[in-house]
Design a protein around this nucleic acid. Structure first.
Lengths: 272, 272
DNA sequence: AAATTTCTGAAATTTTACTACCTATACGAC
DNA sequence: GTCGTATAGGTAGTAAAATTTCAGAAATTT
């Protein structure tokens, strides 16, 4: 961001350049100042500061503050910013990576507020665990299943509607069903979740906080889709889901103790 | 900070607890919201939100915004050792997340040196694209397949040895085979790659640089296993593979132009 | 030198954060 | 029961900050 401001400086008007230079020289102070005080520092009018914010592609001063604050507390990503942006393909590639990284960082930040312990506790006692997901989330479910069954607990992956509904219909007390769905909008999933709960199974949902599915689950891991709702979106949230499930598996392995670790070792040896 | 809020929640009054819970559940949104909108979301008055800020030891709403924004974009302590048995569950969970983030950051750093353009060029002209992977990488392959076929090029996912070998055996000039394997050690994959190349297909490999598979491929995306070959399966490298394939898909979509984007939109609409 | 565009700040407006104050409920003493 | 006290929590008002409008100044072109 600071880099970007520096690059754009020559294209700004004189007064705005003063702002740009001051910001680059006092980034920390800039991030905590008010519009008026920055204007005073740079000896320009307040509208000029706003125009500066707009010219560097932001929405207003408010967003400027937020973005600058974010940038200053993110030591890594400043480093690579000087990739020459002439090549669109590689530009896009980095953007996608950035989005993925950002979504994981977001997830990491809220990790401590997630019901990890509750989920692990439920899974520790589980008679069996089923992972349910459709489409891209189906792959996540399959992946998770393959990871978890090595801990010794019976696991299934359910990746189509009939399977999911049937499983929910015959589920019992002691079963854990984990629903994965970034939107939480498939009515079939909600129905299955309801069914499973009525039969006494524990329902865990990796989905959007406000969705119907979330409201039906015993334990919810909210995974807000990050900002851009473009055509590509499910990508980053799927990564976040995977990472979360990785984390849960490790946590579960720790709680289960030696037995589980032993089983992991055995499953590994079987491959060689 | 979120942790701190969570700890302090019981000591707050009823209305303030509502605010606390909402903030913990929507940290990102909270960091970008105005006082009024948070009050509305939590169904409390504005002063209550301010009182909440004061109670958690901050100066006012302004500082709350800054602190939260900082917290959410702090990439974390880079001291992530491997998970050890005496970790608490939540320790382990954060460590796993850190490892995942680190591996993506690593990948992003070397992104510009990767043969993205070559791979995209090959795929642009492809008659069909096959994604081959075994075990966990099989899920990556399936996921990638589902993503790429929406661009309009015929795609298959091959997730077991016989399929992979057979496909390689009948592959033709103009076909692209993408092998995904974090170790690159399966001899069958190497055999398939050799076969495919002999028949004129283009072989792309996402695998370890020094492996036999890598040496047989036309285009290699080296994904050093950052992680130790511990008992946990290559979790983060799989994430890196996925992210890389995401990036490739976006790059390909850009090169293919409007048609591809149209197709993406159509596939999206078909779901609704 | 006139005309046009492009900056820039003063002032007005809106939005946002914060304060002062008031009310309803809970709880205890009498 | 009723009265007093405490306190959570809201209403309404205020100060301050962000944003918009507009008119004059500077620069550029013609």
């Amino acid at each position: 961001m600071l880099m970007q401001i520096k690059d754009l400086t020559p294209e700004l008007s004189r007064a705005e350049q003063r702002v740009a230079r001051w910001v680059v020289q006092h980034p920390k102070q800039a991030s905590r100042s008010t519009l008026a005080s920055i204007a005073a520092e740079c000896d320009v009018s307040e509208p000029t500061v706003i125009r500066f914010c707009r010219h560097i592609g932001l929405d207003g001063f408010r967003e400027f503050t937020i973005r600058l604050t974010e940038d200053l507390s993110r030591p890594v990503s400043n480093v690579h910013n000087n990739v020459s942006a002439d090549d669109t393909a590689s530009d896009a590639v980095t953007k996608v990576m950035d989005a993925s990284i950002a979504s994981l960082i977001d997830m990491r930040a809220i990790m401590s507020s997630l019901p990890v312990d509750a989920a692990v506790a439920a899974m520790t006692r589980a008679r069996q665990i089923a992972f349910a997901g459709l489409g891209a989330s189906g792959h996540v479910a399959a992946d998770a299943c393959q990871k978890f069954f090595r801990l010794g607990t019976p696991c299934t992956a359910l990746t189509n509607t009939p399977d999911i509904l049937q499983f929910a219909g015959v589920s019992e007390m002691g079963d854990v069903m984990i629903f994965i769905s970034h939107g939480g909008r498939w009515p079939e999933l909600a129905r299955a979740a309801e069914l499973a709960r009525r039969r006494g199974a524990i329902v865990i949902a990796l989905t959007d906080q406000g969705s119907r599915l979330a409201s039906l689950a015993n334990i919810v891991f909210p995974c807000e889709g990050v900002e851009d709702a473009s055509i590509y979106t499910p990508m980053s949230s799927r990564l976040a889901h995977l990472a979360l499930l990785d984390a849960l598996q490790v946590a579960l392995a720790l709680v289960l103790g030696d037995t589980a670790v032993d089983k992991l070792k055995k499953s590994r040896q079987a491959l060689q």
